[in-house]
Design a protein around this nucleic acid. Structure first.
Length: 256
DNA sequence: ATGACTCGCAACGCGAGA
């Protein structure tokens, strides 16, 4: 079972790229972030024509997440529990082939010291509670998405240049570790050890051409799915194309 | 360089992203 995640920075602008990647990479499940549209405007027909069902959590202009699946999927929730007042479309969860799968768009949190940063940390605490509950229920899961966290300096092209950024703050990284320490596995790291590999490159200043990026998109596996981890990688091909998203897909393969 | 691009909105520049 191949599960991938990709922040597409608008599904409307990236529909051809997504369809092309579905055809070439043939994932069983593709998690999308920043679809930037309401559910009613999501191109479900075009996606369906490629053989994929979809579950959508949309909003106007910003954010928005989706789960595409070649297999039947049943949405289990369309918001991260823990704050009924949180209207941002950043979390959707579904069961596919006996695996609970979530598409996550974790808040960016910049600038640090603002309510945006506090929202990020609070959101991460809610995510930790969700992970704790899934583990307690012994539900096998894969939580994939744009975590907006570069877990270590290895995941940052120039750590010195990023010291004031919410994506690398000690509080951000500690919150990420609190989640990981519940017993999760970072699929890319489990397969590739300390390889230096980014998943996002700024559109500006030739960051892509200079390979000046961050590794902020992750697939986090529960113990039962980590047992089944056969392979994982970052696919750089979509980032090379014209009109690319600033993120590129990350995928993992689970044995059946 | 508090920059640089790219997106949606529906402005005819702005906010947000990371």
């Amino acid at each position: 079972m191949k599960i991938a995640t990709w922040n597409v920075n608008s599904i409307k602008s990236r529909l051809d790229a997504v369809i092309g990647w579905l055809r070439s990479a043939r994932p069983d499940v593709l998690l999308l972030q920043e679809i930037k549209c309401l559910e009613e405007n999501f191109p479900s027909l075009e996606i369906s024509a490629e053989g994929y069902r979809s579950a959508i959590c949309g909003q106007r202009t910003y954010s928005g997440v989706a789960i595409l699946s070649r297999h039947p999927l049943e949405a289990t929730c369309r918001a991260l529990p823990g704050d009924d007042g949180d209207a941002q479309a950043r979390y959707i969860e579904a069961d596919v082939n006996g695996v609970r799968i979530a598409s996550i768009y974790l808040p960016n949190g910049n600038p640090i010291g603002t309510e945006k940063f506090a929202y990020k940390l609070a959101w991460m605490e809610r995510l930790r509670a969700r992970v704790r509950d899934l583990l307690a229920a012994e539900i096998p899961f894969v939580l994939g998405g744009d975590y907006n966290i570069a877990p270590a300096d290895l995941d940052v092209h120039d750590p010195h240049a990023w010291t004031q950024d919410a994506l690398v703050q000690p509080e951000s990284r500690a919150a990420f570790r609190r989640i990981m320490h519940l017993g999760l596995t970072d699929a890319f790291r489990a397969v590739h050890g300390n390889a230096r590999q980014f998943t996002w490159w700024d559109y500006r200043a030739g960051a892509w051409q200079r390979n000046e990026g961050l590794r902020i998109d992750h697939l986090l596996l529960s113990p039962q799915t980590a047992d089944r981890l056969a392979d994982a990688a970052v696919d750089m091909e979509p980032r090379k194309r014209d009109k690319a998203s600033d993120h590129t897909p990350v995928w993992c393969e689970l044995t059946e």
